[in-house]
Amino acid sequence: MADPLSPFRSSLLPVGVRELAPHANPVTAILMGRGGSLRLHLHGARVEGDMLLIRPGVVHGVVLPTRGADIIYLNGLDFPSDAPLAEALEGKLAQLAGGALEGGRDAVDELRACLAASASATLPSVADVVRAIYDDPMRRMPQGELALRLGLERTKALRCFKAVTGQGFREFKLWSAVQYAAAQMKEGALVRTAAMDAGFADTAHLSRVFRRVFGLTPSAAIAGLSVN
């Protein structure tokens, strides 16, 4: 089973467009097409399937079926494969991923446990920092506070944080904020309101980050929510 004390949250994003612009997922993600297969492409290489496990940090484009797709972002989870871009999921993993994409908490926990490369626990001090960042998305915790919370010199604290979370400190804070903004928009918030509540300077700042990590603009994401 997944570690019940893990601080990492998984986030869901419904996508109603036919194509995602080149972007790099900040974390391991699973993409499931709605009623059709997906195609990821990168410099002539491609991976196709109804449900794809996507490597983080690799810029790629996506062609989706007519009704779009659903994505789950598995924060804090190392990519469990040697595939250079993505691999199709089948069998038990596909069943668990389907349940997770439907919002099943138990399915998410079991999916993460099955995909986890190891069962090592997150350091309590880093876990507390992760929770603090999640709990206050508008605030950008300074590096000095991170060092103080971890009881380490600043550079060592930054290295420790990245080793545990898989993301740099600044990257993690920005990714957490944009996920929060996306969740607010799913609940009906205006883009400018979501940007402000997540601590972005303005809607243009949110839009730039949104497109870089999701491959579409906030307005396109909102329009896609009505696609069934």
Rank of each mutant, 00 (worst) to 15 (best):
P4K: 10
P7R: 09
P7F: 04
F8C: 05
S10P: 04
S10D: 10
R18I: 02
E19P: 04
E19R: 15
L20Y: 00
P22N: 09
A24F: 07
I30H: 12
L31A: 07
M32K: 14
G33V: 07
G33R: 07
R34I: 08
G35C: 10
G36W: 03
R39A: 15
L40V: 08
G44P: 04
R46F: 14
V47S: 04
G49W: 06
D50H: 11
M51I: 05
L52E: 06
L53A: 12
L53E: 06
I54H: 03
I54S: 08
R55L: 07
R55H: 06
P56Q: 07
G57D: 06
V58A: 09
G61R: 02
L64Q: 11
R67D: 13
G68E: 06
A69C: 10
D70H: 11
D70E: 09
P80T: 03
S81K: 03
P84D: 08
P84I: 05
E87C: 11
A88H: 02
E90K: 10
E90Y: 05
G91L: 05
L93Q: 03
Q95D: 14
Q95W: 03
L96F: 07
L101Q: 07
G103W: 02
G103D: 07
G103L: 11
R105L: 14
A107G: 10
L111A: 10
L111W: 04
R112S: 10
C114H: 09
A116M: 06
A117C: 07
A117F: 01
A117K: 15
S118R: 12
S118M: 03
S120G: 05
P124H: 01
A127D: 00
D128G: 15
V130I: 12
R131P: 03
A132V: 02
Y134R: 12
D135R: 15
M141V: 12
P142V: 08
G144V: 09
L146K: 14
L146I: 11
L150I: 14
L152R: 15
L152W: 01
E153N: 02
E153R: 12
E153V: 08
R154H: 10
T155C: 03
C160Y: 00
K162E: 15
K162L: 10
K162G: 08
V164I: 14
T165K: 07
G166I: 05
G168L: 01
S176E: 08
A177I: 02
A177S: 15
V178Y: 02
Q179I: 05
Y180A: 11
A181I: 09
A181Y: 04
A183F: 04
K186L: 10
E187N: 13
R192T: 09
R192D: 11
A194S: 07
A195I: 02
M196T: 08
M196Y: 11
G199T: 03
G199D: 03
F200A: 06
D202H: 08
H205A: 15
L206F: 05
S207F: 00
R208G: 10
V209S: 00
V209G: 02
F210A: 08
R211I: 02
R211N: 12
V213P: 00
F214E: 00
G215I: 04
T217S: 15
A220W: 00
A220R: 13
A223V: 06
G224F: 05
G224E: 07
G224P: 06
L225Y: 11
S226F: 11
V227M: 13
V227L: 08
